[in-house]
């Protein structure tokens, strides 16, 4: 079942496997860490650091998959595979930021349920 930015089946599975309390903490950790990862992605793009750029996208993809943030994961995967854009091109980073904001809002709601 997909409801908005979060695949609820995947999210339920995570809670089931690790416990509700732990899953809630893990969501908070992700919400704390993700802005840093997006910042790293931007910094890597500015510095033409292709490895750093790929790694930041890879991390976001990996975590998005954990929480069932399917759209965010798919976008991050495209960025990971797409390679570094021309120096200073913020298109990918901006799209990723917007997708993360949606996923984050949905995860916050789920955490408060």
């Amino acid at each position: 079942m997909t409801n908005g930015p979060i695949d609820l089946d995947i999210f339920a599975e995570l809670k089931d496997a690790t416990g509700d309390e732990f899953a809630a903490e893990l969501v908070n950790t992700f919400l704390d860490e993700a802005p840093g990862m997006i910042a790293e992605l931007k910094a890597a793009a500015d510095a033409s650091d292709a490895d750093g750029y790929r790694r930041a996208a890879h991390s976001i993809k990996s975590n998005a998959n954990t929480f069932g943030a399917t759209a965010l994961a798919e976008l991050a995967r495209k960025i990971e595979l797409g390679g570094i854009p021309a120096t200073g091109d913020p298109t990918d980073a901006k799209a990723l930021e917007a997708s993360f904001a949606k996923a984050a809002a949905a995860l916050r709601t789920l955490n408060n349920d």
């Binding site: 690790t18 416990g19 893990l26 950790t29 860490e33 991390s59 990996s62 975590n63």
Partner: peptide, 10 residues
Amino acid sequence: NKVNRLLLSR
């Protein structure tokens, strides 16, 4: 990645 470390440890 911190989320991965926490999740795998758990």
